[in-house]
Simulated scan of single mutants.
Amino acid sequence: MTSVRANGVELGVETFGRDDDPLVLLAGGTTMLSWPDSVCERLAAGAQRVVRYDLRDCGASTTLDPEAPAYRLRDLAADAAALVGTLGAATAHLGGVGVGGMVAQVAALDHPNAFSALTLVSTRPVAPGPVDDDLPDHDAATMDAVFSRPMPDWTDRAAVAAFAADGADLLGNVPEQARATAARIWDRTPSSEPSVQQANQLAMVFARLDCRPRWRERLGELILPTLVVHGRADPFFPVGNGEALAAAIPAARLLVLDEMGTALRDAAADEVAAAMLAL
């Protein structure tokens, strides 16, 4: 892992594969670890140069104030486009998980020449906040259960990892995978400040972003090959969001994984990587 400067900020990156292979650029949701090692390794084995990276205020990227971000969603999209050039590529297959998937949609719309393909995982075609009437919102009972739990001591690595594992079943995820990922995120967070640790674990910063203007009405402009991956067991962005996203993008293919919740599972790495390589 290292960091590179793009669009005026430092972005934490990690590379898999050979530098002269086609670039697959993967934007994280909370951090780059939203993209499991298993998926990155299988893409690299398919002759791709895989670079996963932390969005601003996450992981090894520039972190200022996660509680009051002084940038917009479109700035994060511009980061992705700038990163392609910084990494020495002409274009990239861009992937995003969760809010990273929103970044990827806007990046492909605003910077079409920078991207050759798109993979959107566990995301939706509108910003955080109130959802359009035709899209399913967060499952209310699940969200009540998730957010009624006492918050951990964010400075205690073991407590944070246990908190992630405890909530995994509610979100359709694998407890031990969630525990391991949370511990790695904690280790990579450069500050011991509780607000920064919480932002890295729960992506709190993204709920505070200015995401205007809307981009859903522009999705028909996307003509690049697109894969939409969604879990049927996702209670945060229920599967209807992925279905609507795939229907709005002319060249999109929808891959629904029956056992998946909000997070990519190691067990699905072969299927997801194969679908991405087929674009």
Rank of each mutant, 00 (worst) to 15 (best):
T2Y: 01
S3V: 10
R5K: 11
N7D: 12
N7Y: 05
V9A: 15
E10A: 09
E10S: 14
G12L: 00
F16D: 15
F16Q: 07
D19L: 14
D19F: 05
D20G: 06
D20R: 05
P22G: 08
V24I: 08
V24S: 00
L25A: 09
A27D: 05
G28C: 08
G28D: 08
W35Y: 01
D37A: 13
D37C: 08
L43A: 09
A44T: 10
G46D: 13
G46R: 14
A47T: 07
R52M: 04
R52C: 04
D54L: 01
D54Q: 10
C58Q: 15
S61M: 03
S61Y: 04
T62H: 02
T63R: 04
T63K: 06
L64M: 05
E67I: 07
A70K: 11
R74Q: 10
L76E: 11
A80C: 10
A81V: 06
L83C: 09
L83F: 06
A92Q: 02
A92N: 05
H93Q: 06
G95H: 01
G95W: 00
G96L: 03
V97Q: 11
G98D: 14
G98T: 10
V103R: 06
V103W: 05
V106L: 12
A107W: 02
A108C: 12
P112V: 10
P112G: 04
P112D: 12
N113Y: 00
F115C: 08
F115V: 13
S116Y: 01
L120D: 14
V121L: 07
V121D: 14
V126I: 06
P130N: 09
P130M: 12
D134R: 04
P136F: 15
D139C: 10
D139R: 11
A141D: 15
A141G: 03
A141I: 09
V146L: 13
M151T: 07
T155V: 14
R157D: 03
A164V: 11
A165W: 02
D166V: 07
D166W: 01
G167A: 11
G167R: 15
L170D: 02
L171N: 03
E176W: 03
E176Q: 14
A178R: 06
T181S: 13
A182C: 06
A183M: 01
D187Q: 02
D187L: 09
D187I: 09
S191M: 11
P194I: 13
P194N: 02
Q197D: 00
N200V: 12
L202R: 08
L202I: 08
L202T: 15
R208V: 05
R212Q: 14
R212D: 12
R214S: 13
R218M: 06
L219G: 00
G220E: 12
L222F: 03
P225C: 04
T226D: 11
L227F: 04
G231C: 09
G231F: 13
G231L: 11
P235V: 13
P235Q: 01
F236K: 00
F237E: 08
E243P: 00
A244M: 02
A244N: 04
L245D: 09
R253S: 13
L257T: 07
E259R: 15
E259Y: 05
E259V: 01
A263F: 08
L264C: 06
D266W: 01
A267L: 01
D270M: 00
E271Q: 14
L277I: 04
L277G: 15
A278S: 15
A278Q: 13
L279I: 00
